[in-house]
């Protein structure tokens, strides 16, 4: 998978550059995100604005990361179209903190 990462204070914004998150890459996504928290990033904002498709294994990977947290937080932004539908269908939109944009997430989390 490809990511674009920027740090703002203790917030790491990870933008997924792949268009699809499915079984073939879900394990890599989970490993990458867990690694970020092990590297002392307090909050990771996962920007999914470039992602046009996510399946149940991709969703499961994000849930697994959330469940593994010993502090800090994983929040999401940039969900559109099929990705937003998937979170709503599975009720995961009630589980994750979701922002419209990375800037909105940073602004809220920095306040």
């Amino acid at each position: 998978m490809q990511f674009n990462e920027t740090t703002v204070g203790n917030i790491l914004v990870t933008r997924v550059l792949d268009k699809r998150i499915a079984e073939a890459v879900s394990s890599e996504l989970k490993t990458t995100l867990v690694g970020h928290f092990q590297n002392q990033h307090g909050v990771v904002v996962l920007d999914l604005s470039e992602v046009s498709f996510i399946d149940s294994s991709g969703l499961g990977a994000l849930v697994a990361v959330l469940k593994s947290l010993q502090g800090g937080d994983l929040v999401l932004c940039g969900l559109g179209g099929a990705v937003a539908n998937m979170f709503k269908l599975t009720r995961m939109d009630k589980v994750f903190r979701i922002f419209q944009t990375a800037d909105e997430a940073i602004s809220t989390l920095s306040a």
Partner: peptide, 11 residues
């Protein structure tokens, strides 16, 4: 109940 959220079986 974060600990009991499903990671699989959703498909």
């Amino acid at each position: 109940d974060r600990a009991n959220l499903p990671e699989g079986g959703m498909g």
